[in-house]
């Protein structure tokens, strides 16, 4: 490139900033301008101002929706996990973050607590569903005979409402595992045969529903607490 031999400046830094923002410079002239934009705050401000002025040119460009699958790829790479869109749509992913630590605690309590009476099967899967504000904590333990023990440790349903338990497996829509009892803290739920394989690697969630449970077969009220199912 021969930019170096261009006319000596009859213009000031302002126009250099414009040329740099526009991207027409090449070679040494470009390299010098780039170095100044990094080290000279006054020049950087000029460059920013020009970038904003020129960005208005993009207003003439029609928006185009990117392909549907693209965000899934971005998200997988950004978050480093494969779990699907459903949970995030509900906005409950942050609640999952503490689940691993919680499961360790739960493992100990499961071993010592109400779940493991002499002669009863040992849990193979556990989950702890915790509300973001800790107002609801529900522990669950699954034994290989198909029983899911669910213990409400903190909190209860709102007056006139019930708590409903859901299994979310991969990208699938949530499947109801039933409504939790209101008059006792411990439930024993028999997981339907067809759902047992989907527990591993899945997520349990609790939603707020009208009496009798969700009328639609999908969560209708707020998702109050969520926890990843951990393999022991």
């Amino acid at each position: 490139m021969t930019d170096d031999s261009l006319t000596p400046d009859e213009f000031g830094d302002d126009v250099l900033a414009a040329e740099y923002a526009l991207g027409v410079l090449t070679g040494q002239t470009h390299a010098d301008a780039a170095a100044r934009a990094r080290t000279d705050p006054a020049f950087a401000v000029e460059v920013n101002a020009w970038q904003d002025r020129l960005a208005a040119l993009t207003e003439a460009v029609a928006p185009v929706a990117p392909p549907r699958g693209l965000f899934k790829r971005i998200r997988r790479e950004a978050f480093g996990e494969a779990r699907g869109g459903f949970l995030r749509q509900l906005g409950i992913i942050p609640a999952i973050m503490g689940a691993t630590a919680a499961a360790v605690v739960l493992y100990a309590t499961v071993q010592l607590g109400v779940f493991t009476q002499p002669g009863e099967p040992t849990p193979t899967l556990v989950a702890q569903m915790v509300a973001e504000d800790n107002t609801l904590v529900v522990a669950a333990a699954y034994t290989d005979d198909g029983s899911l023990f669910v213990e409400r440790r903190v909190g209860a349903s709102a007056p006139g409402r019930v708590l409903e338990l859901w299994l979310i497996s991969g990208e699938d829509a949530p499947v109801s595992l039933g409504v939790l009892a209101q008059d006792q803290v411990l439930d024993q739920i028999t997981v339907p045969e067809g759902l047992r394989d989907r527990l591993t690697g899945g997520v349990l969630a609790i939603s707020d529903e009208p009496q009798g449970g969700s009328p639609t077969g999908a969560p209708t009220g707020a998702v109050l607490a969520v926890g990843e199912i951990m393999t022991l």
Binding site: T58, V64, P66, F71, I74, R75, F79, R88
Partner: peptide
């Protein structure tokens, strides 16, 4: 993460264009 998703859905068509 929710904000990331919201930002993507609000701005990706403009940027992709």
């Amino acid at each position: 993460r929710k904000a990331f998703e919201a930002l993507y859905s609000a701005t990706s068509a403009k940027l992709f264009g």
